[in-house]
């Protein structure tokens, strides 16, 4: 906003109020989306429970990944 110094004080105040309103709306929308994302994640709790199960495959795959990672660095 290059021509800000030519704006009247009233216009500036109006712009600030308008921007603050927009910012508030955007924040509310962002929070709503985050909550929705969380609600959806919890809806799929069964899936997450499966992901959260401990298995030896996890360790095996991690070690294999680590070995490949080290080899690729060399």
């Amino acid at each position: 906003m290059a021509n800000v110094n030519v704006l009247t004080t009233e216009r500036l105040k109006a712009l600030i109020a308008d921007t603050e309103g927009t910012l508030k709306q955007l924040t509310i929308e962002l929070e709503r989306r985050e909550l929705l994302k969380q609600e959806n994640a919890i809806e799929n709790l069964e899936e997450h429970m499966k992901d959260a199960e401990l298995s030896l495959d996890t360790i095996r795959e991690f070690l294999a990944y680590l070995t490949n990672d080290l080899k690729s660095r060399e």
Partner: peptide, 12 residues
């Protein structure tokens, strides 16, 4: 340690 090992599954 259990949840730490579980987190290794996200390594990729």
């Amino acid at each position: 340690i259990t949840n730490t090992i579980v987190s290794l599954g996200h390594v990729k």
